[in-house]
Design a protein around this nucleic acid. Structure first.
Lengths: 173, 173
DNA sequence: TAGATTGTTAATCGATTAACAATC
DNA sequence: TAGATTGTTAATCGATTAACAATC
């Protein structure tokens, strides 16, 4: 993985000692403990807001379930999408979000709404008490509430790729 | 942005001096120069491989065009998708990839194929001479060729969110 | 005991920040 | 000249790496 043994020991010791000097690590135990640290052994209830291509792609991506993220609801304002089912989860109208959140525990909201609607939707979700936001809009979302926000900036990654391609070309000339 | 003035000056000086001491920066000129450094003023020809939800989502995301990434082809093995058009780009069968790449310049291939097919598809694309790969499969793709690979690991970001939510809960208890 | 492996301290490296010189 | 702003060197900070002690 391109990581030194030293670094792994150093990193693990930020959270405690998981091995036995002279003996080694119990791999299964360590794997589990790392899971506990990351919280993947917790069960998070997740909703998706915005059932466009990105929202549907994420809804269909079942790998998240393995990490303890369970999709419990999908919301959109497009009435032609409302009622449609994705992996047994019915798409609901955004208007019913408030009732849903009050009746069901929701830990994380995945925001897949268009750029211009993102701040308003994020604000609404946060005020309803959802503590985790996963934002796919190309903006650095910040909120004045006690909310954890992870911004996914795909274009950043693409620009890094472009930069590196450019550099390669320069050095090859 | 949470960045000190010092850091901006330091970073810019990695690439040269773009301002005038005592006078300031010409914002328009600097903006353009940063674009040149990042390569967003170049025109990259991009193809998408895999026209599932993620591939379609990226194909419809027109913002990349603004940064100089022009979508020129979409490929899939699912024959029910072949022939369909996304933003005027016809989905082609993966079998015609080789001919397409030889007849058209392709700088970047976006890989949106299922996990198990990723290494084989990546290998094929790289051997055809595509120099940039943007990989959306949850694996750290590495190839023995002179190819630039950017891996997008969405689940990493989600796990960070889970970790931070967990931490918040712990400290609040 | 000898070899092996983790925990922990020390050394090194790189990046960020601060200070100041150069210039308008 | 005085004030303001960038370029560049020095100081600080944090993370990575190396060294070694502890232990099986």
């Amino acid at each position: 993985m391109g990581i030194t043994a030293s670094q792994i020991r150093q990193d693990l010791n930020c959270f405690g000692g998981f091995g036995q000097q002279g003996y080694g690590y119990n791999v299964e135990y360590l794997y589990n403990e790392i899971g506990n640290i990351l919280g993947v052994n917790e069960a998070f209830k997740v909703i998706i807001i915005g059932a466009g291509n990105m929202g549907q792609a994420l809804a269909n991506y079942s790998n998240f379930e393995k990490r303890g993220f369970r999709l419990t609801g999908i919301f959109d304002i497009n009435s032609s999408l409302v009622g449609k089912k994705i992996r047994d989860i019915e798409i609901m109208h955004l208007d019913s979000l408030e009732r849903f959140v009050s009746e069901n525990e929701v830990d994380i909201a995945i925001l897949c709404v268009p750029y211009e609607h993102t701040p308003a939707v994020a604000d609404k979700v946060a005020r309803l008490g959802v503590k985790g936001l996963w934002n796919f809009s190309p903006m650095d979302l910040k909120l004045p509430y006690d909310v954890i926000i992870e911004n996914v900036h795909l274009s950043d990654s693409l620009m890094v790729l472009g930069y590196r391609l450019n550099e390669m070309r320069k050095t090859e000339k």
